Simulated assay, not measured.
Amino acid sequence: MIQESQPLPRTPFHTSLDGEGGESSAARSSTAPPDVEDYALQIKETADKLLHDQASRGDMRLLATAVRELRYCFKIFSAYRHRRKVSIFGSARTPPQHPAYKAAEEFGRRIASAGWMVITGAGSGIMEAGHRGAGRDASFGLNILLPFEQAANPVVQGDPKLVTMRYFFTRKLMFIKESDAVVLFPGGFGTHDECFEALTLIQTGKSHLFPIVMVDEPGGNYWQLWQRFIQEGLVDRGYISRHDTSLYRITDSVEEAVRQVTSFYRVYHSLRYVRGELVLRLQQPLPPALLQRIREEFRDILSGGDFELLPGALPEESNEPELAHLPRLKFRFQRQAVGRLRQLVDLINAEA
Rank of each mutant, 00 (worst) to 15 (best):
S5L: 13
Q6T: 06
P7R: 08
R10S: 00
T11P: 04
H14D: 05
H14L: 12
T15S: 12
L17A: 01
D18S: 10
E20L: 14
E20G: 04
G22T: 07
G22M: 05
E23K: 04
S25Q: 13
R28L: 14
S29V: 06
P33W: 03
P33L: 11
D38K: 00
L41R: 10
L41F: 11
Q42T: 11
A47D: 05
A47H: 03
L51W: 02
R57N: 14
G58E: 15
D59A: 15
L63I: 12
V67W: 14
I76M: 13
I76C: 06
A79D: 10
I88H: 03
I88N: 01
I88A: 02
R93S: 03
R93Q: 03
T94Q: 02
T94D: 05
T94N: 00
P96C: 11
H98I: 12
A103Y: 01
E106V: 03
R110Y: 13
V118I: 15
T120F: 07
S124C: 08
E128A: 09
A129T: 04
G130R: 09
A134W: 06
G141Q: 11
G141S: 09
N143Y: 01
Q150T: 11
A151Q: 12
V156P: 00
D159W: 07
V163K: 03
T164H: 01
T164L: 00
M165D: 08
Y167R: 06
F169Y: 13
F169S: 09
F169C: 04
M174S: 13
K177F: 08
A181H: 10
V183Y: 13
P186C: 08
F189P: 00
F189I: 07
H192W: 03
C195S: 12
L201W: 02
L201P: 11
L201C: 07
I202R: 04
V213Q: 02
G219Q: 12
G219K: 09
G220R: 14
Y222T: 09
W223C: 09
Q224W: 12
Q227S: 15
Q231V: 02
Q231Y: 02
G233S: 13
L234A: 00
V235S: 00
R237V: 02
R237A: 01
G238R: 03
S241I: 04
S241F: 03
R242N: 04
H243P: 07
D244N: 15
S246A: 15
R249Q: 08
T251F: 05
D252K: 05
E255C: 07
A257C: 06
V258W: 00
Q260W: 05
Y265P: 09
Y268D: 10
Y268P: 03
R275L: 15
L278T: 07
V279L: 14
L280M: 14
L280Q: 15
L282H: 01
L286G: 10
P288G: 12
Q292K: 11
R295G: 14
D300E: 13
D300W: 06
I301S: 04
G304D: 10
G304E: 12
L309A: 15
L310N: 06
G312D: 06
P315T: 09
E320N: 06
A324E: 13
H325T: 10
L329H: 09
R332C: 07
V338I: 13
G339V: 08
L341S: 01
V345G: 04
D346Y: 10
D346C: 05
L347D: 05
N349M: 12
A350Q: 12
E351W: 09
